[in-house]
């Protein structure tokens, strides 16, 4: 890994303390977020706040299974986020397909299409696990190890090739989009 400049170190420590998330609520994992955000577990004390649009967000939460149709939107949304950006995969569905491992429309591993910084195991992970994962992510960001966005840039062709292999084409044209 390249040595970081002092400015990058400072910036990374800021980034680790202020994480704005875009919760892309694809599956059941979204249910675990409300308790994590509200009074019981209170995410905001770590500086983690929900944001409405991908432009403002730092991390993207993929909360559950992803079918091909959703994956297109996820890729599109991920590419709209500003660098540096991090991805958190929730639950076993994003790790190996979970109970949808043999579905004709659900992908089996997320990091094949976009770089994932932290996976949270479980079906579904409990709020404690989520907070643990965020702490781990913050640590990674502070050390400059959460470099998924750099990997996406460096291996862009590889990721694109994988996406096209599974999806045929990332952006589709049909009557609903014209």
């Amino acid at each position: 890994m390249k040595e970081r400049t002092i400015w990058e170190q400072i910036a990374d420590s800021f980034r680790s303390r202020s994480i704005w998330m875009l919760h892309y609520c694809t599956g059941c994992g979204a249910m675990e977020l409300p308790p994590t955000m509200t009074a019981r577990f209170d995410m905001e004390r770590f500086g983690i706040t929900p944001m409405a649009t991908p432009r403002q967000a730092d991390i993207m939460l993929i909360t559950g299974y992803l079918n091909t149709k959703t994956l297109r939107r996820v890729i599109y949304t991920y590419e709209q986020m500003a660098d540096p950006k991090y991805v958190v995969g929730f639950g076993s569905c994003t790790i190996n397909g979970g109970i949808y491992f043999d579905s004709y429309s659900t992908i089996n591993r997320l990091d094949y299409y976009i770089p994932v910084d932290v996976y949270i195991a479980g079906c579904m992970p409990r709020p404690e696990a989520i907070l643990e994962a965020f702490n781990y992510l913050m640590e990674k960001i502070r050390k400059g190890e959460a470099d998924g966005w750099k990997r996406y840039k460096e291996n862009y062709d590889w990721y694109k090739q994988n996406q096209i292999r599974s999806l045929g084409e990332v952006y589709v044209h049909d009557e609903f989009h014209e």
Binding site: A11, F14, R15, R17, S18, W20, G47, R55, D58, Q80, A82, D83, P84
Partner: peptide, 12 residues
């Protein structure tokens, strides 16, 4: 922290 982090990002 929020403001300086926002300033440090690569915008569109």
């Amino acid at each position: 922290i929020d403001v300086f982090k926002a300033l440090s990002k690569h915008p569109f």
